[in-house]
Design a protein around this nucleic acid. Structure first.
Lengths: 124, 124
DNA sequence: AGAATAGGTAAGTGATAACTTACACGTCAA
DNA sequence: TTGACGTGTAAGTTATCACTTACCTATTCT
């Protein structure tokens, strides 16, 4: 997995951002902890401490997983006081759904073929 | 990603087998080469050499990827002469679809909420 | 039988994923 | 202001991925 440095301009300052070269949603959701984090966020926007609670890992580890989710755009971050609240952005999952669609079709065809086969069997 | 050693009994002897602890379909499809392999198999059962052709990697590398797909059950292998024909078994992808379903719901709710919000705005 | 074809497996290597601890920095509370 | 809270980042370690080359076995062809 490669990393690329990109720069992002804001009105007030320049902020450096690190992004996944491939916006690889597939890789992002490959890790069970990250899937679990997304699941937790279905309950709504939540601060890191709250997200980290169910896990036995250190909090920095969670931060790092959140970073990966952030990089592929599956979550966003909003600062509120000394907290950072993470929010789910499931739009990126569309990519996966689209990839899966191919296999839906394949699956349908196989079912159809099976149906035909059974029809023939019955006719004999 | 953890690995567990399991033992498998046969009538004639004991064979040691290494298996993915989690039959992790998510991990299996995380690699672009493996997704591509599955895509190629939509065209029907195919021998390894044919599957390996589009790639610049060595053939053993492809064999190793196929092994991972085999382990999680996304493909099956059938011997035919000196060839081994691989066949797609997309059933395992259901697991992913099911996980995604949660977010479909979330997404719907967000759209609904947005609709409500816009309604209120309009009423003002 | 001997050579060529098809493909799996072993062993080794380099890159990187996934943790950990230590630390820095902004925010709130006393 | 001082300290506690909430969190990100740096650096280091270990395990594992993803490849390569070398080799082995089974099948087919001559």
């Amino acid at each position: 997995m490669g990393w690329t440095a990109t720069t992002q301009a804001t009105t007030t300052a320049m902020t450096k951002t690190v992004q996944l070269a491939t916006e690889d949603v597939f890789t992002a959701i490959a890790h069970p902890v990250r899937r679990r984090l997304l699941d937790l966020l279905v309950g709504g926007e939540q601060p890191v401490n709250r997200l980290a609670m169910p896990f036995k890992m250190s909090r920095p580890a969670i931060s790092q997983h959140l970073r990966i989710l952030l990089d592929v755009g599956l979550v966003s971050e909003r600062r509120s006081g000394r907290e950072r609240r993470y929010r789910l952005h499931p739009e990126g999952l569309r990519q996966i759904r689209e990839w899966l669609a191919t296999y839906d079709r394949f699956w349908q065809e196989r079912l159809a073929a099976l149906g035909d086969h059974l029809d023939k069997e019955n006719r004999q």
